[in-house]
Simulated scan of single mutants.
Amino acid sequence: MDFYSLLIENIIIICGTFSYAVSGAFAAMQKRLDAFGVIIVAFVTAVGGGTLRDLVIGDTPVFWIKEPSYTFVIVVAALLSMFFWKNVKRFKKTLFLFDTLGLGFFTILGIQKGLAHNLDPGSCILLGTFTGCFGGIARDMLINNIPIIFRKEIYATACILGGAFYFVLDALNVENSISELLTISLIVVIRIVAVRKQLVLPRFY
């Protein structure tokens, strides 16, 4: 991996971890948890998907144990969220924004982890979906909410479509860092458009 690609990957990792930690912190503050509770929910949100991913593919110890800098980023994100929450007028919009960003960043990280373990595209997309979604599931379960993935909102579908798009770009020999950024952008756009336009998957009951 060249320096530019490594730089892009590290930026994605930091941005994804920070985004999901902030979304967890704001979700916890909505429930009026104390500072310790906010940090715990932020931590679980940020590492939940990656932990499941690593356990599924047998990559242990899991990533945040091998690299303590993740914990530092999460704690900083949680503290900043608590200190500056008064500057954010609407919890719900902030939570949605950072959750959507985290979904995009972590989906591509899961796909890249699958490729590093020589998995086929379908398994990589599934791994990316796990990585993107499970942190939000864990967050919502901790604060006693129905997880977004089980509601009517388009959530996991955005990860799957983004993952498929990534492999289309790969087949077209698009440079990897560009493919990653385009995939993240597509997932974010799908989520935003789906919520703004109230697009949902069909129900069969």
Rank of each mutant, 00 (worst) to 15 (best):
K31M: 07
A78S: 15
L169C: 00
Y70D: 12
L181A: 11
L7H: 15
I187T: 10
A35C: 12
E175L: 15
Y166T: 02
P61N: 05
F130C: 15
D120K: 13
R196I: 05
P61H: 08
N176Q: 12
Y70I: 13
L55I: 14
V168N: 13
S81P: 03
F3R: 11
I178S: 07
A158R: 08
N173Y: 05
V193S: 09
L119E: 04
S179T: 05
G114E: 07
I149W: 04
T157C: 03
G114F: 13
E67K: 13
N87A: 12
I74F: 14
Y205V: 04
A42L: 04
L182T: 07
G49R: 04
I148R: 04
L169M: 06
F150S: 00
F134Q: 05
M29T: 07
T71H: 03
P202W: 06
L181P: 13
A28N: 07
D2F: 07
V56Y: 10
I74M: 14
E180S: 06
A156S: 02
D140Q: 03
S5A: 07
F106L: 13
K152A: 00
I8A: 08
L7Y: 15
M1G: 13
N118H: 12
N145I: 04
P147H: 02
F204K: 01
I190H: 03
F72M: 12
H117R: 11
M29Y: 00
G37Q: 02
L127K: 14
A138S: 13
L199H: 00
I39C: 10
A42G: 09
I137C: 03
L7K: 15
A158I: 09
S69M: 15
P147I: 00
E180L: 08
V56C: 15
D99L: 04
I8V: 09
I187W: 10
L7T: 15
A138N: 13
G50N: 09
G136N: 01
I74S: 13
Y155F: 02
T60G: 05
I137F: 07
E153R: 08
S179E: 01
L161V: 02
V56K: 12
L181W: 08
R90F: 01
V168W: 12
I184Q: 09
L79H: 12
V38C: 03
F150K: 00
C15M: 15
A25T: 00
V189T: 06
L127W: 11
F36T: 15
G104R: 13
